[in-house]
Amino acid sequence: MSEHAPLIIETPATYIRRIRLNRPKQMNAYTTQMCDAMCDELDAYLKDDDLRVLIVTGEGRGFCAGGDVSNADTDRAHLMSQQLSHAREMRDGMHKVIQTLHHLDKPIIAAINGPAVAGGLALALACDFRIAAASAKLGDTSGRFALLPDEGGGWLFPRAMGLDKALQMTLLAETYSADEAMTLGLVTQVVEDDTLEATALELATRLAAQSPLAVRLAKSMMRNGLDLTLEQSQREAALAVMIANPSDDVAEGVKAFFEKRAPVFSGK
Protein backbone atom coordinates (compact mmCIF):
# COMPACT_ATOMS: atom_id res chain seq x y z
CA MET A 1 0.00 0.00 0.00
CA SER A 2 1.19 3.53 -0.78
CA GLU A 3 2.91 5.43 2.00
CA HIS A 4 0.45 8.25 1.23
CA ALA A 5 -2.63 6.07 1.82
CA PRO A 6 -4.46 7.18 4.99
CA LEU A 7 -4.55 3.62 6.34
CA ILE A 8 -2.31 0.56 6.24
CA ILE A 9 -4.33 -2.66 6.24
CA GLU A 10 -2.70 -5.87 7.49
CA THR A 11 -3.71 -9.43 8.34
CA PRO A 12 -1.16 -10.41 11.01
CA ALA A 13 -2.78 -13.78 11.77
CA THR A 14 -5.74 -15.94 10.78
CA TYR A 15 -9.08 -14.25 11.54
CA ILE A 16 -7.35 -11.00 12.57
CA ARG A 17 -7.32 -7.66 10.73
CA ARG A 18 -5.15 -4.70 11.72
CA ILE A 19 -5.71 -1.09 10.69
CA ARG A 20 -2.84 1.38 11.06
CA LEU A 21 -3.62 5.07 10.86
CA ASN A 22 -1.00 6.29 8.40
CA ARG A 23 -0.16 9.96 8.86
CA PRO A 24 2.89 9.52 11.10
CA LYS A 25 4.33 13.00 10.49
CA GLN A 26 1.07 14.48 11.81
CA MET A 27 0.86 11.98 14.71
CA ASN A 28 -2.00 10.38 12.77
CA ALA A 29 -4.31 13.36 13.12
CA TYR A 30 -7.40 12.41 11.17
CA THR A 31 -8.69 13.95 7.96
CA THR A 32 -11.86 13.51 5.93
CA GLN A 33 -10.00 11.10 3.66
CA MET A 34 -8.87 9.00 6.64
CA CYS A 35 -12.42 8.90 8.05
CA ASP A 36 -13.83 7.77 4.71
CA ALA A 37 -11.22 5.02 4.49
CA MET A 38 -11.91 3.94 8.09
CA CYS A 39 -15.64 3.63 7.42
CA ASP A 40 -14.96 1.50 4.35
CA GLU A 41 -12.61 -0.80 6.28
CA LEU A 42 -14.96 -1.15 9.24
CA ASP A 43 -17.77 -2.11 6.88
CA ALA A 44 -15.51 -4.70 5.23
CA TYR A 45 -14.53 -6.09 8.66
CA LEU A 46 -18.16 -6.40 9.71
CA LYS A 47 -19.20 -8.22 6.54
CA ASP A 48 -16.27 -10.66 6.32
CA ASP A 49 -17.03 -13.77 8.40
CA ASP A 50 -13.40 -14.85 8.08
CA LEU A 51 -12.41 -11.85 10.22
CA ARG A 52 -13.13 -12.18 13.92
CA VAL A 53 -11.02 -9.51 15.64
CA LEU A 54 -9.85 -6.02 14.66
CA ILE A 55 -6.79 -4.17 15.98
CA VAL A 56 -6.60 -0.39 15.51
CA THR A 57 -3.22 1.28 15.96
CA GLY A 58 -1.08 4.10 14.60
CA GLU A 59 1.95 4.19 12.35
CA GLY A 60 5.02 5.88 13.78
CA ARG A 61 5.09 7.55 17.20
CA GLY A 62 1.44 8.44 17.63
CA PHE A 63 -1.92 6.70 17.92
CA CYS A 64 -4.13 9.64 16.93
CA ALA A 65 -3.75 13.33 17.77
CA GLY A 66 -7.39 14.11 17.05
CA GLY A 67 -8.44 16.28 14.12
CA ASP A 68 -5.81 17.86 11.89
CA VAL A 69 -5.51 21.56 12.84
CA SER A 70 -2.67 22.33 10.44
CA ASN A 71 -5.09 24.21 8.15
CA ALA A 72 -6.94 25.93 10.96
CA ASP A 73 -7.35 29.27 9.21
CA THR A 74 -8.73 27.68 6.04
CA ASP A 75 -10.99 25.38 8.05
CA ARG A 76 -12.31 28.29 10.12
CA ALA A 77 -13.12 30.29 7.00
CA HIS A 78 -14.93 27.24 5.60
CA LEU A 79 -16.84 26.76 8.84
CA MET A 80 -17.89 30.41 9.09
CA SER A 81 -19.16 30.46 5.51
CA GLN A 82 -20.73 26.99 5.36
CA GLN A 83 -21.77 25.84 8.84
CA LEU A 84 -24.20 23.22 7.56
CA SER A 85 -21.69 21.59 5.23
CA HIS A 86 -19.17 21.48 8.09
CA ALA A 87 -21.76 19.73 10.26
CA ARG A 88 -22.33 17.21 7.47
CA GLU A 89 -18.58 16.59 7.24
CA MET A 90 -18.51 15.76 10.95
CA ARG A 91 -21.62 13.56 10.70
CA ASP A 92 -20.25 11.61 7.75
CA GLY A 93 -16.65 11.67 9.02
CA MET A 94 -15.37 11.01 12.53
CA HIS A 95 -18.88 10.88 14.00
CA LYS A 96 -19.63 7.96 11.70
CA VAL A 97 -16.33 6.27 12.55
CA ILE A 98 -16.96 6.52 16.32
CA GLN A 99 -20.56 5.33 16.03
CA THR A 100 -19.59 2.41 13.80
CA LEU A 101 -16.86 1.30 16.18
CA HIS A 102 -19.17 1.62 19.17
CA HIS A 103 -21.97 -0.43 17.60
CA LEU A 104 -19.89 -3.12 15.87
CA ASP A 105 -20.70 -6.50 17.38
CA LYS A 106 -17.24 -7.89 16.64
CA PRO A 107 -14.38 -7.23 19.10
CA ILE A 108 -12.01 -4.31 18.55
CA ILE A 109 -8.67 -3.71 20.26
CA ALA A 110 -6.98 -0.31 20.34
CA ALA A 111 -3.19 -0.73 20.50
CA ILE A 112 -2.22 2.75 21.70
CA ASN A 113 1.36 3.20 20.56
CA GLY A 114 1.65 6.90 21.34
CA PRO A 115 -0.42 10.02 22.07
CA ALA A 116 -4.19 9.45 21.94
CA VAL A 117 -5.71 12.85 22.58
CA ALA A 118 -8.99 14.65 21.92
CA GLY A 119 -10.67 12.82 19.03
CA GLY A 120 -7.89 10.23 19.21
CA LEU A 121 -8.93 9.39 22.76
CA ALA A 122 -12.55 9.14 21.63
CA LEU A 123 -11.40 6.76 18.90
CA ALA A 124 -9.65 4.56 21.46
CA LEU A 125 -12.62 4.61 23.84
CA ALA A 126 -14.97 3.50 21.06
CA CYS A 127 -12.98 0.24 20.96
CA ASP A 128 -13.61 -2.62 23.39
CA PHE A 129 -10.09 -3.02 24.78
CA ARG A 130 -7.30 -0.45 25.06
CA ILE A 131 -3.74 -1.66 25.44
CA ALA A 132 -1.35 1.25 25.86
CA ALA A 133 2.41 1.48 25.49
CA ALA A 134 4.03 2.72 28.69
CA SER A 135 5.19 5.89 26.95
CA ALA A 136 1.76 6.79 25.57
CA LYS A 137 -0.04 9.95 26.64
CA LEU A 138 -3.83 10.16 26.78
CA GLY A 139 -6.18 13.05 27.42
CA ASP A 140 -8.27 15.81 25.91
CA THR A 141 -6.24 18.69 24.48
CA SER A 142 -9.14 20.26 22.57
CA GLY A 143 -9.45 23.07 25.10
CA ARG A 144 -5.97 24.31 24.21
CA PHE A 145 -7.45 25.36 20.87
CA ALA A 146 -10.81 26.49 22.34
CA LEU A 147 -12.31 23.44 20.63
CA LEU A 148 -14.84 20.94 22.00
CA PRO A 149 -14.83 17.16 22.60
CA ASP A 150 -17.17 16.92 19.63
CA GLU A 151 -16.15 13.61 18.05
CA GLY A 152 -17.96 11.70 20.80
CA GLY A 153 -15.86 12.59 23.81
CA GLY A 154 -18.75 14.39 25.48
CA TRP A 155 -20.50 11.01 25.68
CA LEU A 156 -17.54 8.63 25.96
CA PHE A 157 -15.32 10.45 28.46
CA PRO A 158 -17.79 10.61 31.40
CA ARG A 159 -18.77 6.97 30.87
CA ALA A 160 -15.16 5.86 31.01
CA MET A 161 -13.88 7.93 33.94
CA GLY A 162 -16.86 9.53 35.68
CA LEU A 163 -18.26 13.01 35.13
CA ASP A 164 -16.02 14.88 37.55
CA LYS A 165 -12.78 13.43 36.14
CA ALA A 166 -13.98 13.94 32.57
CA LEU A 167 -14.81 17.58 33.29
CA GLN A 168 -11.40 18.09 34.85
CA MET A 169 -9.63 16.51 31.87
CA THR A 170 -11.57 18.44 29.23
CA LEU A 171 -12.01 21.83 30.89
CA LEU A 172 -8.34 21.96 31.93
CA ALA A 173 -7.06 20.28 28.74
CA GLU A 174 -5.16 17.67 30.73
CA THR A 175 -3.15 14.70 29.49
CA TYR A 176 -2.04 11.69 31.49
CA SER A 177 0.61 9.02 31.43
CA ALA A 178 -0.48 5.52 30.44
CA ASP A 179 -0.41 4.39 34.08
CA GLU A 180 -2.49 7.37 35.19
CA ALA A 181 -4.91 6.73 32.34
CA MET A 182 -5.36 3.13 33.47
CA THR A 183 -6.12 4.31 37.01
CA LEU A 184 -8.71 6.70 35.59
CA GLY A 185 -10.39 3.93 33.58
CA LEU A 186 -9.25 5.06 30.13
CA VAL A 187 -6.95 2.09 29.51
CA THR A 188 -7.39 -1.67 29.94
CA GLN A 189 -3.71 -2.60 30.19
CA VAL A 190 -0.30 -0.93 30.06
CA VAL A 191 2.72 -2.75 28.61
CA GLU A 192 6.27 -1.93 27.66
CA ASP A 193 6.55 -0.17 24.33
CA ASP A 194 8.39 -3.02 22.61
CA THR A 195 5.74 -5.57 23.60
CA LEU A 196 2.65 -3.58 22.56
CA GLU A 197 2.04 -5.23 19.19
CA ALA A 198 2.74 -8.72 20.52
CA THR A 199 0.39 -8.18 23.48
CA ALA A 200 -2.41 -6.85 21.26
CA LEU A 201 -1.94 -9.75 18.85
CA GLU A 202 -1.98 -12.27 21.73
CA LEU A 203 -5.29 -10.88 22.98
CA ALA A 204 -6.67 -10.86 19.45
CA THR A 205 -5.63 -14.49 18.99
CA ARG A 206 -7.37 -15.50 22.21
CA LEU A 207 -10.54 -13.70 21.14
CA ALA A 208 -10.40 -15.25 17.66
CA ALA A 209 -10.30 -18.72 19.21
CA GLN A 210 -13.67 -18.17 20.92
CA SER A 211 -17.00 -18.85 19.25
CA PRO A 212 -17.54 -15.84 16.95
CA LEU A 213 -21.31 -16.23 17.31
CA ALA A 214 -21.16 -16.22 21.11
CA VAL A 215 -18.68 -13.34 21.14
CA ARG A 216 -20.86 -11.16 18.92
CA LEU A 217 -24.04 -11.92 20.85
CA ALA A 218 -22.39 -11.42 24.25
CA LYS A 219 -20.83 -8.13 23.17
CA SER A 220 -24.17 -6.88 21.86
CA MET A 221 -25.91 -7.90 25.08
CA MET A 222 -23.43 -5.99 27.23
CA ARG A 223 -23.27 -2.91 25.01
CA ASN A 224 -27.06 -2.68 24.75
CA GLY A 225 -27.47 -3.52 28.42
CA LEU A 226 -25.81 -0.25 29.42
CA ASP A 227 -28.95 1.55 28.27
CA LEU A 228 -31.53 -1.05 29.40
CA THR A 229 -33.18 -2.06 32.63
CA LEU A 230 -32.33 -5.47 34.07
CA GLU A 231 -35.66 -6.85 32.86
CA GLN A 232 -35.15 -5.49 29.33
CA SER A 233 -31.63 -6.94 29.23
CA GLN A 234 -32.87 -10.34 30.33
CA ARG A 235 -35.55 -10.33 27.63
CA GLU A 236 -32.85 -9.56 25.05
CA ALA A 237 -30.72 -12.37 26.49
CA ALA A 238 -33.58 -14.85 26.14
CA LEU A 239 -33.87 -14.00 22.45
CA ALA A 240 -30.09 -14.31 21.96
CA VAL A 241 -30.15 -17.75 23.58
CA MET A 242 -32.59 -18.89 20.91
CA ILE A 243 -29.85 -18.15 18.36
CA ALA A 244 -26.83 -19.38 20.32
CA ASN A 245 -27.95 -22.63 21.97
CA PRO A 246 -28.92 -24.54 18.79
CA SER A 247 -25.62 -23.55 17.09
CA ASP A 248 -22.88 -25.93 15.99
CA ASP A 249 -20.50 -24.03 18.24
CA VAL A 250 -22.42 -24.98 21.40
CA ALA A 251 -22.41 -28.62 20.31
CA GLU A 252 -18.67 -28.38 19.64
CA GLY A 253 -18.02 -26.72 23.00
CA VAL A 254 -19.85 -29.47 24.91
CA LYS A 255 -18.18 -32.22 22.87
CA ALA A 256 -14.72 -30.72 23.40
CA PHE A 257 -15.35 -30.47 27.15
CA PHE A 258 -16.09 -34.18 27.48
CA GLU A 259 -13.24 -35.11 25.13
CA LYS A 260 -10.89 -32.94 27.23
CA ARG A 261 -9.59 -30.90 24.28
CA ALA A 262 -9.72 -27.32 23.09
CA PRO A 263 -12.84 -26.57 21.02
CA VAL A 264 -12.59 -25.48 17.40
CA PHE A 265 -15.40 -23.06 16.72
CA SER A 266 -16.76 -22.40 13.24
CA GLY A 267 -19.19 -19.59 13.98
CA LYS A 268 -22.14 -21.70 12.79
Rank of each mutant, 00 (worst) to 15 (best):
S142T: 15
S2P: 15
E252M: 08
A208D: 01
R235F: 15
A198K: 12
A198I: 10
V190F: 00
D50Q: 12
D36V: 10
A208M: 01
L51N: 06
E202W: 01
R17P: 01
H103Q: 07
G114A: 10
G143K: 00
V117M: 08
D179M: 15
A240M: 13
T170P: 02
N71E: 12
L230M: 12
R216H: 08
L104N: 00
L226K: 06
H4Q: 10
G153N: 02
G267K: 01
R144Y: 15
A240P: 01
V190S: 00
K106R: 06
A116V: 05
A198L: 09
A200H: 04
D227G: 00
P149R: 03
D164V: 03
S142Q: 12
A118L: 06
A37C: 11
I109D: 03
A251K: 14
P212T: 04
S266K: 14
G120L: 06
A204P: 02
A256G: 11
L163D: 01
L228C: 04
L156P: 09
L54K: 07
R61W: 09
D48T: 08
L213Y: 09
S211T: 04
P107H: 05
F129V: 15
K268L: 13
T141L: 15
R159K: 15
K260P: 08
N224E: 14
G267H: 02
A256M: 11
D140A: 09
T74I: 15
V254T: 05
I131L: 12
S135A: 04
A5K: 13
L230E: 11
R23E: 11
Y176G: 00
A181H: 01
L54E: 12
A178K: 02
K25N: 11
L203Y: 07
A37I: 11
R216M: 13
H86M: 14
A77K: 14
A124S: 14
T175S: 02
I109N: 05
L171W: 00
P212C: 05
R159C: 08
P115Y: 02
H86T: 15
K260W: 09
P24C: 08
A133K: 01
F129T: 14
F258E: 02
Y30L: 07
E192F: 07
I112R: 02
V56T: 10
K25W: 09
Q189A: 05
I19G: 03
A118Y: 02
E259D: 14
A251S: 09
K25S: 14
A160P: 01
D249S: 03
F129R: 03
F265W: 13
T175Y: 00
D194Q: 10
T32A: 13
Q210M: 04
M161S: 06
G162R: 01
Y30E: 09
G154I: 15
I55Y: 03
Q189R: 10
E59I: 08
I109H: 02
E252R: 05
D227S: 07
A256H: 07
V187M: 03
T141A: 12
A5P: 07
L207H: 09
G66L: 04
M94H: 13
C39Q: 04
K106F: 08
D73L: 13
